[in-house]
Every structure is written in C-alpha cells, then in structure tokens.
Computed example of a mutant assay.
Amino acid sequence: NWAGFYLLEKGSGDLVLGPFQGLSATPRIKQDSGVVGTTFTKQTLTIVPDVHQFAGHIACDPASNSEIALPITRKNGEKIGILDIDSPITNRFDQQIALDLENFIQTLLANI
C-alpha cells in the first residue's frame, strides 16, 4: 500500500522523503528513528513482519501491517538513502522479495 524512497540530506543528516506512491508520509526521518532510520543507521535490510510490534514504528498509513526497508549505498560506501515498502498484509515480505529488491537497488545504483 506504500512504496518510496527516503534520501539522505547531507547537511542535516536527516532522511527526506523522495519519490513515493501511496498516502502522504512523514517528510523527514532522523537516523535511528523508526524502521527507515534504523535501517539507515545499521545499513542492513530490515523486514518487519508486524509493524505494531516494532518499537518506535512511525505510522503513516494506518492500513500498513508489515514493512521492508533496504539501504541504498554505493559500493564505495556512499550512503544514498532507503527504499521503504509497506503492506497491509502481516508477514508480507520474505527473503526472496528481499533478494529481488536488493537486485533492483543494484540496478538503480548502476544507472545513477
């Protein structure tokens, strides 16, 4: 029900909402805040089977029940941002979806 990008604003260090599809979302997220900020800080894939069980979850769409967030980082270590996807279905995301999205991110990075 929601998919979009949060991009690093180098001056503030915040993650700023970029292109997205779905209901309006939080325009700025601090590093270490919510699923997006935690994923950015840890620089690891985050799969949240039930967002209601994630301490500090930032709810934008009350219909969202699960979430996946992936860091977008160049091979040289430059941090670009996060790809964030929500679903109204609990436990919607699995390792195959994560692998497919990681491949998608690598394709994006190869073309920007």
Rank of each mutant, 00 (worst) to 15 (best):
Leu8Gly: 09
Glu9Trp: 06
Glu9Tyr: 05
Glu9Ser: 08
Lys10Ile: 11
Gly11Met: 12
Ser12Trp: 01
Ser12Asn: 11
Gly13Trp: 06
Gly13Met: 05
Gly13Val: 09
Asp14Ile: 05
Asp14Met: 13
Leu15Gln: 08
Leu15Asp: 14
Leu15Gly: 01
Val16Cys: 03
Leu17Asn: 02
Gly18Lys: 02
Pro19Lys: 13
Pro19Asp: 14
Pro19Cys: 06
Pro19Gly: 14
Gln21Arg: 08
Gln21Ala: 13
Ser24Ile: 07
Thr26Cys: 15
Pro27Thr: 04
Ile29Gln: 04
Lys30Ser: 06
Asp32Gln: 07
Ser33Arg: 10
Ser33Gly: 02
Val35His: 12
Val36Phe: 10
Val36Leu: 05
Val36Gly: 00
Gly37Asn: 10
Thr38Gln: 00
Thr38Phe: 12
Thr39His: 05
Thr39Ser: 13
Phe40Ser: 04
Phe40Trp: 02
Lys42Asn: 14
Lys42Gln: 15
Gln43Thr: 03
Leu45Ser: 10
Leu45Arg: 14
Thr46Pro: 06
Ile47Thr: 08
Ile47Pro: 02
Val48Asn: 05
Val48Gln: 05
Pro49Trp: 02
Val51Phe: 04
His52Glu: 14
Gln53His: 08
Ala55Met: 08
Ala55Leu: 12
Gly56Thr: 11
Ile58Cys: 02
Ile58Asn: 01
Ala59Gln: 13
Cys60Gly: 12
Ser64Trp: 02
Asn65Gly: 00
Asn65Lys: 15
Ser66Asn: 11
Pro71Glu: 10
Pro71Asn: 09
Ile72Val: 13
Thr73Gln: 14
Thr73Asp: 08
Arg74Ser: 00
Arg74Leu: 13
Gly77His: 09
Gly77Pro: 07
Glu78Met: 11
Glu78Cys: 10
Lys79Met: 12
Lys79Asp: 13
Lys79Arg: 12
Gly81Asn: 03
Gly81Leu: 04
